[in-house]
């Protein structure tokens, strides 16, 4: 792995981006209008995910019923074909530790951002299908949920945009892909809107403390850019829907 030129002396990464460039970010909203209350399809680089939001609805189980606020439930389905090599595990991956961890992280990230107290005694069920993954998946999941929740009309304080940043020697690299992710330590951020508030900070590798500030700075800048991209996509989508509605 180390034999690859992760960041060349000329300042280019393995896929031709510079250190502070995001990957291609494309999204469509309300893709599954019949199957859900809000949905989005997101391509961030070669990460491709579908997010479906159902709810707020009445919970089927009594245990999911909370008198004061809505219950948030997030299910992540990492499809077996989403990587280069088909995953060989038989049976469901639903209860895999890694997946459970991702789900918990996502619930914690959004619990405080969605105004769940407005929907007592209901459940909001978010389902994500990862069709293809190419590094920094958690960040993409956050973006997908944000878009789908807005589409579902669930009250929230602000956008949350997610992005992963790697640290190669002393250079922070924004929005890592799978090759880069494997080669260095990475941080995933979830940033509230245009603020510098972090609703998620995940560091799974070792990272020198004195470099972290640098990494966060570029990460937050990248997340703000993603927020703008999401905002733009949503506004375009809204425009289209309004014109459709008024044409009727």
């Amino acid at each position: 792995m180390s034999r690859l030129e992760v960041y060349s002396p000329e300042g280019l990464r393995m896929d031709g981006r510079r250190w502070n460039e995001l990957r291609r970010f494309e999204t469509s909203i309300n893709t599954h209008s019949h199957a859900s209350d809000g949905s989005s399809y997101l391509e961030q680089g070669n990460n491709k995910i579908i997010t479906l939001v159902k709810g707020p609805t009445e919970p089927t189980l009594r245990s999911q019923l909370d008198q004061t606020k809505a219950t948030l439930q997030i299910t992540v389905n990492l499809t077996k074909f989403s990587k280069f090599e088909r995953s060989k595990t038989t049976g469901s991956t639903k209860n895999e530790r890694r997946i459970l961890e991702i789900q918990t992280a996502l619930v914690r990230t959004f619990e405080k951002n969605l105004m769940l107290n407005l929907y007592p005694r209901t459940i909001i069920d978010i389902e994500i299908h990862v069709l293809q993954q190419d590094g920094g998946v958690l960040g993409t999941l956050i973006n997908g949920i944000t878009l789908a929740c807005i589409d579902a009309g669930i009250a929230m304080y602000d956008y949350i945009s997610g992005v992963s940043i790697g640290l190669y020697d002393t250079t922070p690299l924004l929005d890592v892909n799978s090759l880069e992710e494997a080669a260095m330590s990475c941080v995933t951020l979830g940033v509230m809107g245009k603020s510098e508030k972090l609703s998620l900070l995940q560091v799974e590798d070792k990272l020198p403390l004195d470099r972290l500030e640098n990494v966060l700075a570029i990460g937050i800048a990248g997340a703000h850019r993603i927020r703008d991209l999401m905002d733009e996509a949503l506004r375009n989508h809204a425009q289209k829907r309004i014109s459709n509605a008024s044409n009727k």
Partner: peptide
Amino acid sequence: ATKIIREHYLRNDI
């Protein structure tokens, strides 16, 4: 055999 797909960015600032 595995099919590998990677993104490749082309630029004009080289």
